[in-house]
């Protein structure tokens, strides 16, 4: 039974991830991303990572993809992109070759060691049995480990989230007054090229 669920979810994840890469419209890419993330959440459930499956749906599919869609709508970039042009010669064939190489290397490693190396845990096994004879819930085990062995890492992630939120507010706020414009790329139009030449001449003097 779990094998069938794994097969269906794996298919959903693969279709979703290929859709993200190939869709021309960013909104469609975000929807395909939701599909892939939901498939991953189901795969978490199959191996009894219940808490992580819930977090996957709430944080990833709920918050992160909505943030993506929000930015797409805010910036108005939800138009179709022409994927037929390849601005850098040979970029796509090289990228596909690089991706195939990564996949081949990973496959070689996984199949040569048959997936599993290492010993089963003795201190924090997943199928731990509590004092009442029932197996301990996944979220409780996760909390036991995080708040004992990894408590400093947990504090550090709290700090990281605070820094990220403050940084995002500082970067995305609207600045009143004159904006310092980003430098234009030289040669994009005639005026800029002339300006650059004038600057160069001044420096030369």
């Amino acid at each position: 039974m779990t094998e069938i669920i794994f097969g269906i979810s794996a298919f959903i994840v693969l279709v979703g991830s290929i859709g993200v890469v190939l869709s021309r419209n960013p909104v469609h890419a975000a929807l395909f991303l939701i599909q892939a993330l939901f498939g991953v959440a189901v795969l978490f459930l199959v191996v009894e990572a219940h808490f992580l499956a819930a977090i996957q749906v709430i944080v990833y599919a709920g918050a992160i993809v909505i943030l993506f869609l929000f930015v797409i709508m805010l910036l108005g970039v939800d138009r179709y992109e022409d994927l037929r042009v390849d601005p850098i010669m040979g970029q796509r064939p090289l990228a596909v070759v690089a991706g195939a190489a990564i996949f081949g290397l990973l496959l070689a490693v996984i199949l040569s060691v048959d997936g599993l190396t290492g010993e089963a845990s003795v201190t924090s096994p997943i199928d731990r049995v509590g004092p009442d004879g029932n197996s301990v819930a996944d979220a409780r085990q996760l909390a036991d480990t995080i708040f004992t062995d990894h408590v400093f890492a947990f504090e550090a992630t709290g700090l990281l989230l605070t820094v990220a939120v403050v940084g995002a507010v500082v970067m995305a706020r609207k600045i009143s007054g004159d904006l310092q414009p980003l430098p234009e790329i030289p040669g994009q139009n005639g005026e800029d090229a002339e300006l650059d030449e004038a600057d160069d001449a001044e420096v030369g003097e």
């Binding site: 992580l52 944080v59 992160i64 599993l116 010993e119 845990s121 997943i126 996760l142 995080i146």
Partner: peptide
């Protein structure tokens, strides 16, 4: 799941937090 070790799930928890910060 394969090694019967909750440590893998703890790592996923931290990866998710860092990914959220990175996206923001």
């Amino acid at each position: 799941f394969g090694l019967n070790d909750i440590g893998g799930q703890v790592a996923v928890f931290f990866v998710m937090v860092v990914a959220a910060a990175e996206v923001v």
